[in-house]
């Protein structure tokens, strides 16, 4: 699961090393990656919302 999170973060940033990519594609199931992706997308939305709230209030 931690590995999936790391892969999703790398995807969000847009840079992934070849070694990690090979490792990720040897996993048996894509589900940890899909779930981690959905979760992080939610976290990102909440983060943007909080930053916007904070900027509007300050």
């Amino acid at each position: 699961m931690l590995r999936a999170l790391q892969a999703v973060l790398a995807a969000f940033f847009g840079v992934q090393s070849e070694r990690n990519r090979q490792r990720d594609f040897q996993q048996s199931s894509p589900w940890p990656y899909i779930l981690a992706g959905l979760f992080m997308a939610g976290v990102f939305v909440v983060l943007v919302l909080l930053v916007a709230r904070w900027a509007a209030a300050s």
Partner: peptide
């Protein structure tokens, strides 16, 4: 050479 993760991280 192919890929250099450090450089890619810096230019992002």
């Amino acid at each position: 050479f192919h890929e250099n993760t450090t450089v890619e991280v810096i230019w992002t």
